[in-house]
């Protein structure tokens, strides 16, 4: 007799844990020929609330880590994905990709993580400045993470799109709450499992599955979310995030990009989720030629 396969329960990721939605609700996902693939969590606004709390409490620790260490952790994510490549490919195929397309998406996702791993301790030098002010002060500007970022991940690219947005976000020291692709959510949960075994501290990446219809307004209006990255194409949604985001002057941005293109990996995306802090300090002028005090 053939062996009976063990089916996977797809959960969500909040604060380093992998629970099911607190609401107990789900939406069924079916494959090409209508076969049921999974019962995906239909996350509620309470899940979102909990995820934001988790992201906020992870913020200080993650942004305060040595940049080098963040780089190592991103690289570790890539390593772990490499080891589970087959699983990711299978899942993408289940959700409708051809084998070739699935393979490409997985390897690009891994390479993208390696790419941003390298930026972790370099963007500060690319985007930081020492400013030659006219007065006797030392003045420098450095990028600092914006804080908690809500990400409405690309719909059509369940893994690569997600990785392409999450990677620059966390490489820059932010923590995030992600709403995964609605129709291709499986890879996002497997990705969460990878994160859970990659030394990524709990709460740095929180992943919810569900619908923008239910969650977007809560993402956009949440007063403890500093930025929102929207990666889909709905004009009304694009408008509403900016309007609702105004409540706390949220940095709202729309990233509609073809994530399969190499030019969509670049540090300028990382920069969009940074604040620039300028610091001043006096320089005393003793000992210089002609100086007197």
């Amino acid at each position: 007799m053939p062996r009976v396969e063990v089916l996977k329960t797809y959960k969500i990721a909040i604060g380093g844990q992998l629970p099911r939605t607190e609401s107990g609700r789900y939406y069924p996902l079916t494959g090409k020929n209508g076969t049921p693939l999974a019962n995906v969590s239909l996350s509620s606004r309470k899940d979102l609330r909990n995820a934001v709390v988790a992201a906020r409490s992870a913020c200080g620790g993650w942004s305060g880590r040595a940049a080098f260490n963040r780089g190592q952790i991103l690289y570790r994510i890539a390593e772990m994905m490499e080891g589970r490549k087959a699983q990711f490919i299978d899942e993408l195929m289940l959700q409708g990709s051809s084998r070739a397309a699935a393979e490409k998406e997985v390897t690009m996702s891994i390479d993208r993580l390696v790419y941003y791993s390298g930026w972790c301790d370099k963007y500060q030098q690319s985007f930081g400045t020492v400013n030659p002010v006219a007065s006797s002060h030392f003045n420098f500007s450095v990028p600092e993470p914006t804080g908690v970022v809500a990400i409405v991940a690309p719909e059509e690219s369940g893994l690569l799109g997600l990785v392409s947005v999450v990677a620059p976000c966390i490489a820059g020291g932010n923590t995030c709450v992600v709403l995964a692709s609605e129709q291709r959510p499986l890879s996002s949960i497997t990705f969460a499992e990878v994160l859970a075994t990659s030394d990524v501290p709990g709460g740095v990446v929180n992943i919810l599955t569900g619908t923008t219809k239910e969650l977007l307004s809560h993402f956009a209006s949440h007063m403890d979310v500093n930025a929102l990255v929207y990666c889909r194409h709905d004009a009304a949604e694009k408008m509403s995030i900016v309007q609702l985001g105004a409540g706390n002057v949220k940095r709202t941005m729309v990233w509609e990009k073809d994530w399969t293109k190499d030019e969509q990996e670049n540090p300028y995306l990382l920069l969009e989720l940074q604040e620039i802090k300028t610091t001043w300090h006096p320089i005393e002028n003793i000992g210089a030629s002609g100086a007197k005090y």
Binding site: S135, S136, H137, P282, E284, N285, I286
Partner: peptide, 10 residues
């Protein structure tokens, strides 16, 4: 003794 900031004094 209290410290003094040179630039502030100037």
């Amino acid at each position: 003794s209290p410290v003094v900031d040179h630039v502030g004094i100037e």
